[in-house]
Design a protein around this nucleic acid. Structure first.
Lengths: 341, 341
DNA sequence: TTGTAAGCGTTATCAC
DNA sequence: GTGATAACGCTTACAA
């Protein structure tokens, strides 16, 4: 009762039976008589027995644990995704070990090693901005640990992915600006090595093309899309010889930062410059003007990613990698609304 | 090289030495010659050896893992706190298993059991709104697993806590409203069984007292402080016979929800009703009018909680429970500013 | 400095 | 239906 150091051997001794029988009874093995089961369970409760999952995991080579690697836990998109993962994992009897790369390749690498050492059954990851290939994830391949990417992924065969259609989203955002009358549209982009930013950029280009608007390289401003980057990018926008009247930013953070700078200078949004962001952070709905953006359903994506991973974990060799691409939803708000509806 | 199923025995066999020597070499035991260490490490790399932490943990009764229980991962305060915990834990070589109670006592109970079964070395928790005593945490006491509370705590001797001074914060918020000229101040409160809400309420009462304002029970509106509750509470405020001209809400969510309702009705904030929230959610800074609130430094609290826990884990019997109470900071913004500064 | 052997708590295999 | 035993991979007295 007192110490939590009760093992099946203690139960066995007290009941004068063998510990293997106790083990079977506790696991509800059909080959054990009901009577024995009852006795074992009663005694287990009496002694305050707790199964030692370490021993069990060691023996079974199965930890019922999923490793999660995200750039930053406190970013709303990621915390919602994690919340979705947790709910799904909890239902299936899995725990989540959660780690943040803080956008550093080296840290991501160490985390991968640690998760692998801890023998997680699978991994869900959204890669750092410094990650350009899968060399720091090879350890999972080697150990046949399934990996599911969400949002920031690598284009690698054999892995499952949960994404939104970034190309389409980039296209929709840009087309929306064009239809609102914008002629010179800048694009705030992230590192081009990341698929998501490349695809958003390609979508932007494609929309320009469709409407016969000349693509100008100088209008694409790349950065890490942090708050300070948004400010810098806004300054670059204003320093251009041509008059930019629209911005498609590859995330909300940079978009908002730019918008607030414009506001301070008396530049009107959307009249002078219309802005579209990406992510639909909660702030975007309440800021004034409210920010038009692409919705990224974090919670939902987390759930899907977890389900994909669980089926790979359980179906063994059977299941193959799957890529789920969600349709993007453009949420039109005031930062881009120039025309009456 | 191929399978990750390499154990110290494999290394031992290849080198014609004993596995215990390999173990010692890998753990950099001084009693092993440098030459042997070098050979072992080289062979380990060659074979792609990975220490099995399950076996190690089982043997050492130490998992280097901390369990975290929060009501909801996606709430900004909690995700920041978790981010702070993760950074601190990472540095110390610990992993975090993160679970959410979703405000349900039963779920919290099951999670506690599961964390205990997983033999976490310690637990950091912010309790659910349904939790009124420590009966579902007794398992940790039984197993001598240290527990640190943060924010939503239980008033139990023997446990460490990281809190902000809720009484003082309630007092400051209310006094601020009084000094801005409010005469009838309502209070949106959470479940009174939770220390934090009780203390915020007491602070509110105490400020009224100091300024000789009659406390009216009908002005205290209790709920779970969700978005919908804020709306309901706002309606109750307007239905009162007396004209309420100030609100101190025990969280930002309810405050903002009420504010938006007032705005829709054409009631001016702060001129007709001044509002102060609690938490300093990111939204509060950008909403219009911006919300005056009490800052709750989640990231910082997470760091402190983790450090407290780690010292309890490592210092064994030595360290005693400690309660860290942070000074509250009132962030004055436009939702309450009636006077020129 | 290294080897031997036992044990952490569980479960699977084989026997009876 | 139950028991005996070995094994998962690691660590640590105790010997040598």
């Amino acid at each position: 009762m007192e110490n939590g150091k009760v093992s099946i051997h203690d139960i066995a001794r007290e009941l004068n039976i063998n510990s293997s029988t106790v083990s079977r009874a506790l696991n509800n093995n059909p080959r054990v008589s009901q009577k024995t089961k009852d006795r074992v369970i009663e005694k287990a409760n009496e002694l305050g027995y707790q199964k030692n999952l370490l021993a069990s995991s060691l023996r079974n080579s199965k930890t019922n644990t999923i490793g999660v690697i995200v750039p930053r836990i406190s970013r709303h998109f990621f915390s919602s995704a994690i919340a979705g993962m947790e709910e799904t994992a909890y239902k299936a009897g899995y725990n989540l070990i959660i780690c943040q790369s803080l956008e550093h390749l080296e840290r991501e690498q160490k985390i991968a090693q640690s998760l692998s050492d801890n023998r997680v059954d699978g991994v869900i990851i959204s890669i750092s901005m410094e990650t350009k290939d899968d060399h720091n994830l090879l350890i999972f391949k080697k150990n046949r640990t399934p990996v599911v990417f969400f949002d920031r992924h690598l284009d690698i065969p054999g892995n499952s992915n949960v994404l939104i259609d970034d190309f389409q989203a980039g296209f929709d955002a840009t087309e929306h600006l064009i239809l609102q009358g914008c002629k010179k549209i800048a694009h705030f982009s992230g590192p081009q090595e990341l698929e998501i930013y490349k695809n958003r950029f390609e979508g932007y280009k494609s929309a320009l093309e469709k409407y016969n608007i000349q693509f100008e390289k100088s209008l694409v401003i790349s950065s890490k899309l942090m708050e300070s980057d948004g400010l810098e990018s806004a300054k670059i926008v204003l320093s251009q010889p041509l008059t930019i009247d629209g911005i498609f930013s590859a995330n909300d953070v940079a978009a908002i930062s730019a918008m607030q700078y414009f506001k301070k200078l008396g530049i009107r949004v959307p009249e002078d410059i219309a802005i579209v962001g990406f992510s639909n952070e909660p702030i975007s709905a309440v800021i004034e003007p409210s920010l038009t953006t692409i919705d990224q359903p974090g919670f939902e994506m987390g759930k899907i990613a977890t389900n994909l991973l669980l089926s790979q974990i359980n179906d063994k060799e059977g299941t193959i990698a799957e890529t789920i691409i969600l349709k993007p939803v453009l949420v039109v708000r005031n930062s881009s609304k120039r025309l009456p509806i």
